[in-house]
Write a protein that binds this DNA or RNA. Structure first.
Lengths: 347, 347
DNA sequence: GTGAAAGCGCTAACAA
DNA sequence: TTGTTAGCGCTTTCAC
């Protein structure tokens, strides 16, 4: 049966050293591969390590070299495919550079974000990557600012959003470019009555999208109808109710930009329930290009961010800063339009 | 600007002690709340902790008390909603008991599983929860067995699968009950030509489902047609190609049990492309009850596992075992049928 | 109730 | 190339 962790004293470099007839430092040397060790000793030590399956205690190591080689990742909700895609990319990129990551999901609770910031500090992570949550807010919560200020004075924070009054490294998705791609795609297909569904204007990226949307319509001489903007959450229900409201109007939209793929699924569902065809009657497009785009019918036209690159940028920034390299404080991720079945020329 | 971690020496209990005019042990005492400390001293110390935002170094703590209060979670792929749901439930349950979890995604690579097992050991996690990957295989990979044996000799492994030759704590989903619910649901709706789509028979749970499926059909006097079983991966494509193959037969199935919600999405897509209606012509049901069930059209009838409970069982088992409590080595999670729109009476 | 001192397991000068 | 010696920052006896 599996044993309790305290059943048998874990083996240490001292045990290995004694049995190999060398000093602990020599064992440490073969472990870290720092300096040369006489081959015969090295072999003897390695054999012992193998024999006992010895693995150095990461805590002791972290304590003594004061470099943890750990990155903290704070995310809103790993169950959301956007976040999980970013997370996996971060983990891969970190692993490739000899770093581990510790994850924490804050589930939208500011308290939990603040608490986890502390825990990560206790863990002595070398930097913190925060995606989603308070950092997305147009106006950062003040209790959060307080904690973030304190933390950022001691270790770098990398975020895809921003934190008021706190200087941090930002790796952000170009929201303006994203909405531009979508809007111009639809305009190019002949649409003019383009609605925005889901998302709240107190979230930076959503707000930016809204502003750019207005600008682009104006550039194309298309009148802006504020009623075509339906604020809501970032989920299926928002999409569903959005359509409910928008299609109660006389001048119905012919195209909808949903705030993410979940929302788009709700939009499409409600449209189909109401007898509209997508994309024949209404075009629907969205952001994030998660696997949801391929699961639903019709397959969604969506904005992709190249998650591998995004995650790598985050992890690389985090690691580089921790290593004292000079790193741009603002980097941007360029979105890309992926056209599938849900958008078509206006009838 | 955010500073490098080494810019300023982190504060320690010694700093606090000196400024408070007490000994480090006293500071430690207020930190751990172990023994009584004279109120005035306690207050003075707490004020300083607050003033400097002091947080004890988790490594040093872990080193000295030899209890890390950390659980290791090894998962196949957090991007899969099944795993992310379990993960979040585990994290919540662990947090509630004062534990943290460290996650690692192995992305189906056995090498990575083995490597991560080592890393978790280095981190001195108190137990390891492994979900998905080699532990799901009917026959465990031998290099994996070797490592698992070694690890489990030192710390408990909790898994939703099993590991050949290695005794570990198992918290498993009752696959037999799951398929029974689905099969009897369909039979109750008048279906007899029920196909199984997706999943490989060298995966335990899939194999068990297959066996029980046969048994139940037999019990109901329904002939078993081996051609109604389409092996494949656990994804959309498997569902899509499954239908392609099954519906090329003369005796087409009237109901399909997909191995998970992804697979069901592929099944439905192909059916619709081929002009079948779901559920009017063909009923489709699946396992996992992820949010995908609500995203697609029609909404999926699926098997739910109560993720909160599942995750809590895993975390509780892990923690209890680590604390030397006696814990059942086998616990089972009872599935539940959630009926939505994708299943209906046979025409 | 509190301080001194030892120790957790490792790394990194510093000598030799 | 290798051993000795100090820490790293905390907890925990053991005295007082």
């Amino acid at each position: 049966m599996a044993k309790n962790s305290d059943n048998e004293k874990a083996i240490t470099i001292y045990d290995i050293a004694k049995e190999a007839g060398v000093s602990p430092s020599t064992v440490s040397r073969v472990l870290t591969n720092s300096v040369n060790v006489r081959p015969e000793k090295r072999e003897r030590i390695e054999a012992l390590i193998e024999k006992y399956n010895f693995r150095p205690n990461a805590m002791a190591k972290g304590l003594s070299d004061t470099r943890s080689r750990v990155l903290g990742v704070l995310m809103a909700d790993i169950r959301n495919p956007f976040y999980s895609a970013v997370y996996v990319a971060c983990e891969n990129a970190a692993l490739a550079r000899g770093y581990r990551v510790i994850l924490s999901c804050t589930l939208g609770e500011t308290e939990r974000e603040i608490e986890q910031l502390d825990i990560m500090k206790q863990q002595r992570v070398e930097s913190i990557i925060q995606i989603g949550g308070r950092v997305d807010a147009v106006i950062t919560d003040s209790s959060y600012i307080k904690k973030a200020k304190e933390i950022s004075a001691q270790l770098p924070i990398i975020t895809s959003g921003k934190i008021d009054e706190v200087s941090c490294y930002r790796v952000v998705i170009d929201a303006n470019e994203a909405i531009r791609l979508l809007t111009e795609h639809l305009i190019g297909l002949g649409h003019e009555r383009i609605a925005l569904v889901g998302g709240r204007l107190d979230v930076i990226s959503t707000y930016e999208k809204y502003m750019t949307y207005c600008r682009i319509l104006k550039e194309h001489g298309i009148p802006i109808n504020k009623r075509y903007v339906y604020e809501g959450r970032y989920d299926y229900d928002a999409g569903y109710s959005g359509v409910q409201e928008l299609f109660a109007m006389k001048e119905k939209p012919t195209a909808i930009i949903a705030i993410n793929d979940f929302c788009a699924a709700g939009v499409i569902r409600k449209l189909i329930e109401d007898g509209y065809r997508v994309p024949e009657d209404v075009s629907v497009v969205s952001y994030d290009n998660t696997y949801i785009t391929n699961l639903i019918f019709p397959k969604l036209t969506s904005i992709d961010y190249d998650y591998e690159t995004f995650g790598k940028m985050l992890a690389d920034t985090a690691i580089d800063v921790a290593n004292g390299m000079s790193v741009p404080t603002f980097r941007t991720v360029t979105p890309r339009l992926v056209i599938r079945e849900s958008s078509a020329a206006r009838k």
